[in-house]
């Protein structure tokens, strides 16, 4: 019952080792190792926000279908597609 409730609020944690933010665990901080997209403008935009290889990113929560991430002391909401483009280890 508690598990169900936690699930509804996006509190589930995942055990397997994530390769991108899409499968990251909530509350965990990761190091970005790649930005996998052919959209060079988006890649550059992420860069200007400080979201590039070697930088730290935290998955704060998952709201609706969006991922709330913290990069360089700022919060962003990104969609699943963008989350899957941000490779982490």
């Amino acid at each position: 019952m508690v598990g169900l409730f936690a699930n509804a609020f996006g509190l589930k944690t995942r055990s397997e080792r994530p390769t991108s933010l899409e499968s990251a665990a909530i509350g965990e901080t990761y190091t970005i190792n790649s930005i996998e997209t052919t959209d060079s403008e988006m890649k550059h935009f992420l860069f200007t926000l400080g979201c590039f290889e070697g930088e730290r990113v935290t998955l704060v929560s998952v709201l609706s279908d969006l991922y709330v991430i913290s990069v360089k002391d700022a919060r962003y909401s990104i969609d699943r597609e963008l989350a899957s483009a941000i490779g982490i280890d």
Partner: peptide, 19 residues
Amino acid sequence: ENRRETMQDKVDRIVAHRW
């Protein structure tokens, strides 16, 4: 630390909840 979950994030869990 910004990356820590705050009260605001808790509010967001309700306000921007899936349903």
